[in-house]
């Protein structure tokens, strides 16, 4: 099995590593870097639990190879609180109890950050649509929508 040297900036820290070329990005992040906040739920891009941000864009960590991330800047849930939208969402998720088991939450927050940073409104249907690729078995989604809408509203306040 071939390895390749890569360099990524992850949550602000530059890391050089040798990775098997076939290794998924999320497996690399979890197993090699010990950042276990990103979760693996389906390995086919459907559940959304492994969603992370690469160069400011939300992607499925299971649908990229680690070698493809060479040279990129990655934010995982462990680095989210550095982002004002991220930390507001973390706070709102707790306040609205927008998580139970917490397994989907890192991906849910990554998708929500993208929604808000792209100027998404507090329209519930629009939030539901944006988060429709992130599976949560526990909450029934309503509290998640509440949490995201509340952050949109807070930011809209002068």
């Amino acid at each position: 099995m071939k390895n390749k040297e890569i360099e990524v900036c992850i949550n602000g820290e530059t890391i050089q590593a040798s990775v098997p070329v076939r290794m998924n990005l999320v497996d690399f992040i979890r197993e090699k870097l010990g950042l276990t906040g990103s979760h693996v739920g389906c390995e086919q891009g459907v559940c959304g639990a492994c969603t992370i941000s690469i160069d400011g864009v939300a992607v499925r960590g299971c649908l990229m190879l680690a070698v493809q991330a060479d040279g990129s800047s990655i934010t995982t849930i462990e680095g989210v609180s550095e982002n004002p939208v991220g930390s507001a969402l973390q706070r709102a998720f707790v306040e609205h109890n927008a998580l139970q088991c917490g397994f989907c939450t890192p991906g849910m927050i990554a998708s929500s950050i993208e929604y808000i940073e792209q100027g998404g409104l507090s329209d519930r249907a629009a939030i539901r649509e944006h988060l429709s690729g992130n599976y949560c078995r526990c909450t029934g989604y309503q509290s998640i929508i509440d949490a995201v809408a509340s952050v949109v509203d807070q930011r809209a306040e002068p």
């Binding site: 979760h39 609180s81 973390q90």
Partner: peptide, 23 residues
């Protein structure tokens, strides 16, 4: 009262420990 969950604060930081996180 709707007391907030301390566990939720931990989980939104990615600080949960699920079995697959054990090395």
């Amino acid at each position: 009262r709707s007391v907030e969950r301390a566990d939720a604060s931990r989980l939104v930081e990615g600080e949960g420990t699920y079995v697959d996180d054990l090395q």
